[in-house]
Amino acid sequence: MHALPLSALASLPAPYQLRAQRDDDDGFAAALYSSTRDDLRQTPAEPAVIEQLIAMQRRMQSHGYRQSYPHAAYLLLQHGDTPIGRLVLDRQGEVLHLVDIAILPAAQGRGAGSAVLRALQAQAGAQQCRIHLAVNKSNAAARALYQRLGFRLRGENEVQELLAWSA
């Protein structure tokens, strides 16, 4: 197990920066997760029930990540001083797992995701490790971004494509 120091991603171009997620970021993290769950908003149910379902799904995701990746780094992506996204990274041997990346819809398509991924690629290249991630098949924009940045299919299931990148 190798730790991934936050300084490893110092190559992010201004105005982007990463910092460790703190307890006082929980409200942002909840809003960010909620912004990614339009699929659940299509459920034929009362809005309050849907919001409860989203909150429950967020708790389950968080628990699952902490169980599967107990040493993961939880990072907040900022544009200047404004939080716009989150990353969950876990290094296991020669593989850097991008467990999760989420960017607020209003901040998507403006280069933040590309900047983060290029910084990860630079770090992985410098440490001679691969990057693995999973992307939902329904997320065409993210899939296209990963393909443009050289990620290749290493497997798939009914819901996700499993991608890999190496220098």
Score class of each variant (00 low, 15 high):
1 M>A: 13
1 M>P: 11
4 L>F: 06
6 L>F: 03
7 S>G: 14
8 A>D: 12
9 L>K: 00
10 A>H: 14
12 L>W: 02
12 L>T: 03
13 P>R: 08
14 A>N: 09
14 A>L: 14
16 Y>P: 11
17 Q>H: 02
17 Q>V: 03
17 Q>P: 02
17 Q>I: 04
18 L>M: 12
20 A>Q: 14
21 Q>C: 04
23 D>Y: 06
24 D>H: 00
25 D>L: 03
25 D>C: 00
25 D>P: 01
27 G>W: 07
29 A>G: 07
32 L>C: 09
33 Y>Q: 00
33 Y>L: 01
36 T>F: 02
36 T>W: 00
37 R>G: 05
38 D>I: 05
39 D>F: 01
41 R>V: 01
45 A>T: 02
46 E>W: 10
47 P>K: 09
47 P>N: 08
48 A>S: 15
52 Q>N: 13
53 L>D: 09
55 A>N: 13
56 M>A: 14
57 Q>L: 06
58 R>G: 08
60 M>S: 13
63 H>F: 15
63 H>R: 15
72 A>W: 01
75 L>H: 05
75 L>K: 04
78 Q>T: 15
79 H>V: 04
80 G>E: 12
81 D>K: 01
84 I>T: 11
85 G>E: 13
86 R>C: 02
86 R>Y: 02
86 R>T: 04
90 D>L: 00
95 V>C: 12
96 L>K: 10
106 A>D: 14
108 Q>F: 05
109 G>M: 04
110 R>F: 01
110 R>D: 03
111 G>L: 00
113 G>F: 01
114 S>I: 05
114 S>C: 10
115 A>I: 11
116 V>M: 13
116 V>H: 13
116 V>G: 11
119 A>C: 04
126 A>R: 15
126 A>N: 14
126 A>W: 09
130 R>M: 12
131 I>V: 15
132 H>M: 11
133 L>V: 10
134 A>W: 10
135 V>P: 00
135 V>I: 03
137 K>I: 05
137 K>W: 07
138 S>H: 14
138 S>P: 08
139 N>T: 09
139 N>Q: 11
141 A>S: 15
142 A>C: 00
143 R>E: 07
145 L>W: 12
145 L>C: 07
146 Y>S: 13
146 Y>L: 10
147 Q>C: 03
147 Q>S: 05
149 L>V: 03
152 R>D: 13
152 R>H: 08
155 G>P: 09
156 E>C: 00
160 Q>I: 05
161 E>Y: 15
162 L>P: 01
162 L>T: 02
162 L>K: 01
163 L>F: 08
166 S>C: 08
